[in-house]
Simulated assay, not measured.
Amino acid sequence: MSSSMKPVNTSYMNPRTVILIGIPGLEHVQFWIGFPFLAVCLVALFGNVILLIIIPTERSLHQPMYIFLAVLAATDIGLCAAIAPKMFAIFWLRAYSMTFGACLTQLFFIHTLQCIESGILLAMAFDRYVAICDPLRHTSILTPPILGHAIGAVAIRAVVLVGLLPILIKRLHVFRSIRVAHSYCEHMAVVKLAAEDVKVNKICGLFVGFSILGFDMILILISYALIFRAVFRLQQKEARLKAFNTCTAHIFVFLEFYILAFFSFFSHRFGHVPPSTHILLSTIYLLLPPALNPVVYGVKNMVIRERVAQVVLLSRGGGP
């Protein structure tokens, strides 16, 4: 009798709360792990807020590349806001519990903002392609209405496709555990708790991942293949170096974002990576790009560097 009752005793029907345990195996040092993550978040917030102040107010930066960069900065701030508060509450206050609805809400915002970031990186790659391969038509192709439509399409695509994930999780009613082995509510980490058939959830997760991240990555690779072909056809060495220089920041951000993204994506489904390593790298993947993006793009642009220096001087009382 006790054997037949075991599945009932270890199952949870329509749970109202979940428990996020943080980083499995490293619970004893989570307090200290939080400080490097805090430093990364502060750099991300400071850098992206500076970009959102400088780009709208500096007329010379009212170009497609920097409009996309401003959207990327807003997305990165949202990503930090979606992850950091609960993660630090787990690490420092041991506030492990979270309502199931709040968990699904966090899941939706984190993955939606990830997908928006991917779409903006694709838009920035297309901007570089037009600027290098068809420079005379750059302003006529990437007009303000086109930019608005592109940004709107990226956001709608992310909201609609990622919105399927929490909806499909809501149809599940029986869970074998409510302990999420993660520092935030990640899709597969929550799906793995279910005691029901989750084949549809896994297929949908793969579909969303490949239809957004995979699709965007393929198009970015194609755009840069065309860019490199055009650059190598330039006769002057100085012209080739200048063209490459305009792309280096984007290539760095592109490689860093997609390499970490696909490592996290595949290791959760097919890999045998230790949970602590996977969760640390997944968290780094979400928090590091927001910190690096303003640094990488800011260092490459003289106007941004000068305006940042002005802001720092003013904050220290050094005058204009």
Rank of each mutant, 00 (worst) to 15 (best):
V160E: 11
D197A: 09
I50K: 14
Y297D: 00
L69T: 04
K202W: 09
A39Q: 02
I279Y: 05
Y66N: 08
L142Y: 08
P15S: 09
L136R: 13
N201H: 03
Q310W: 03
L292T: 05
I284F: 15
L287K: 10
Y258W: 12
F100R: 09
P275Y: 10
I67N: 13
I169K: 06
R128E: 03
L313C: 01
A102L: 03
A150D: 02
A261T: 15
H268Q: 12
I222C: 12
Y285E: 15
L172T: 04
C80N: 09
T10C: 11
I83G: 04
G101F: 07
F126S: 07
G22I: 00
H272P: 00
A309T: 03
S3M: 06
E58G: 07
A158W: 07
E196V: 02
L287G: 10
F232A: 11
M302G: 04
T246Q: 15
M302F: 11
H272S: 15
I218N: 10
S140Y: 04
I50N: 13
V29G: 02
R240H: 07
L168A: 06
F265T: 06
A194S: 15
L52D: 06
A81S: 08
Q114G: 09
F254K: 00
C41S: 11
C41T: 06
E58W: 03
S223A: 15
I67G: 03
P289Y: 08
R307N: 03
V130C: 10
P7K: 14
I178G: 08
F254R: 00
V71L: 05
A181E: 15
S223E: 10
N14E: 11
G205W: 10
L164H: 05
F175W: 03
F37Y: 05
V190E: 05
F68D: 02
F175E: 01
I169V: 13
L164V: 04
S315F: 03
I55S: 05
A70V: 00
A261H: 15
L206Y: 09
D134C: 12
P274Y: 14
G47V: 02
S4K: 10
I227E: 13
F126W: 14
T17C: 11
